[in-house]
Design a protein around this nucleic acid. Sequence first.
DNA 1: TATGAATGAGGCTTCATTCAT
DNA 2: AATGAATGAAGCCTCATTCAT
Lengths: 200, 200, 200, 200
Amino acid sequence: MDAKPARPPARPQGGRRELTKAQNRETILVAARQVFAQMGFATATVRDVIRATPLASGTFYNYFKSKEEVYQALRDEVALAVRPRLRQARRGAATAEEFFAASFGAFFQFVAENCAGASPERFRMDSPEVLAGFAELQEDIAAAMARGLLPATDAASLSAALAGVAFELVERVKTGAAVEEVTGFATALFLGGINALPKR
Amino acid sequence: MDAKPARPPARPQGGRRELTKAQNRETILVAARQVFAQMGFATATVRDVIRATPLASGTFYNYFKSKEEVYQALRDEVALAVRPRLRQARRGAATAEEFFAASFGAFFQFVAENCAGASPERFRMDSPEVLAGFAELQEDIAAAMARGLLPATDAASLSAALAGVAFELVERVKTGAAVEEVTGFATALFLGGINALPKR
Amino acid sequence: MDAKPARPPARPQGGRRELTKAQNRETILVAARQVFAQMGFATATVRDVIRATPLASGTFYNYFKSKEEVYQALRDEVALAVRPRLRQARRGAATAEEFFAASFGAFFQFVAENCAGASPERFRMDSPEVLAGFAELQEDIAAAMARGLLPATDAASLSAALAGVAFELVERVKTGAAVEEVTGFATALFLGGINALPKR
Amino acid sequence: MDAKPARPPARPQGGRRELTKAQNRETILVAARQVFAQMGFATATVRDVIRATPLASGTFYNYFKSKEEVYQALRDEVALAVRPRLRQARRGAATAEEFFAASFGAFFQFVAENCAGASPERFRMDSPEVLAGFAELQEDIAAAMARGLLPATDAASLSAALAGVAFELVERVKTGAAVEEVTGFATALFLGGINALPKR
DNA sequence: TATGAATGAGGCTTCATTCAT
DNA sequence: AATGAATGAAGCCTCATTCAT
């Protein structure tokens, strides 16, 4: 049905770098990010990951308990990297427009930089870090409402809507759409919509 | 008793014949729908599907040649169930408000009826019905723009945004929120937002 | 504990690591030879082979890609063992009598040494070594005819007849008949018969 | 490796003949003979056999307990059919030549008529009927020696040699060699060889 | 630690055989 | 009897994971 991405070519090559523990972990994470992005998590095998590495298969398990765990670590790493950016962007916003533009812009920018070309397999939303990010969004929205930046409505629904739009549109970014354009679209949508929402 | 090289005959166990022929196909489809929705199509295995069934593994292959084929059948089935409702709702819309209200309303209604107390796990986005519905949504939006019902913007982005909002808010419906309320929220958001979007 | 959709991790059992890498290939080959000889190549399964081994099923595939491949390896191995002996015996023959005596003698000797108390089941004729040996026999007979050692007749039929006699009489060897006696019988038969055959 | 014979085309066609029990058994045997001959016993499936029949799969088991059983029945049927012919031919022989010619001729003729084009998969020699045939051959040879038709040698070895040659040369008949020619070859071989054998 | 061969659960699928009709 | 859908053991193979070195 879909032309599944071919498995990566054997071992990249290379003079078995002598890496410190910390470096090996990072090496694996980098390889895993690439491989999962290219083949999708379900399709990619641990062997695919280590083949993209100068390491041996057993070594993988010195750093991660399972394939599932790298995946989680990857997500956490991402969440850890984006979330502070997003919070800052939102907290520094002086207008509603800035609020939305900053939110979407930072998120799309990050994905564009890190996940370009990744498989369209969607994130699963149940990682603790992702969930925490959700909670933060809702807090920030509530705070923005309190500040008068946003009209008072159902913060939970609004944050859900925001997240939903972000998660769907990010696919367009992954497949090459310009960050500014997609950000502009999402921002306009919410900017226009926010005043039409039922007041609380 | 004698060391004959032939392999022993099979078949020790007891039977389980309970469902009629016609029912079995449906049984498998129902199970497949559930399993794919929960684990995602890529992750789910044929085994997972039959395990969610009172049937034997071989029986699966009396009805479907492969996982791919159930998937297709599912698309076909769903197409016959929800999607026509959604399409009609959207196509019958005379105003933008009707368009959004119909879209969200029909979707939330369907989920409320069918997925009542379903697991809080979000849909995996690669489920067949979801994907198929996506395509149609985009078509209908494009048609609505052509009809002048909606202002001309990027139909793909708008449908993605619509879907994203629907998928996030549907969680609220699953956990008991009133369909009308959630529909109202989403409708208002898009109704307000649509005119603010960059023109095409 | 929690109904996570991911499939449970594998691996409950205890280990069995006993043989060194180099030995395992040989272990599998030995088992395969036995199994193919007893059940025939078509009937035997990879499972049958590994069951005749202390190894795990996956290990088979560390050494051979498929049943076909062991078969080939077997041919190669046997080629390195018996068949050269047979070929040399036949090629070194200076008279027709030597030719037959060498052929039968080497074969019966080999069986006596290797298949001593083996099961009374006849060889299945599709075993790799048998088939490979067949081809060589025919070549050597043709060569012997060319050398004038044997009168010119149908080499294919003669080699078939030779093989047939060898295969039936070898049973007598297996059950304890003296190699010399059986060899003498077969040699005499062909020595006497060869000149009566229709000329080519 | 080898171009395996394709499975037979579905149901031949036809207006579900109303057959008597005896006829059905024969129908299955005929189909089985064809299918096994074409695909080999190991490769052929019961479904292949019934597909070559107007019957349903369950019906197969009204007549045979297993796939193995049809196979045996087939062999028995063959043995039952050939053996009397062979005995008569041998017993009516007035000279050694007639003895051998009759033996080989009757056997090759039968195979040519019944198994032409069959897969080169060899018979397994352990069916009771086949074994019984062996015993008869040995008896007849002993009798012929007693009658002075054949010189006195080891009857067991001679009958084994005869059988071996017959079984190997029959392959040539199966692949189209002329019965007379092959018979002539085998007869000449034994006629010439018999006098060279060690006396008993 | 790092290595990589060994392991076996489990994926997909076929097919001999049973059994409700 | 005859039918043919249902059954599940077993075939082939992959791959996450362990473990001796």
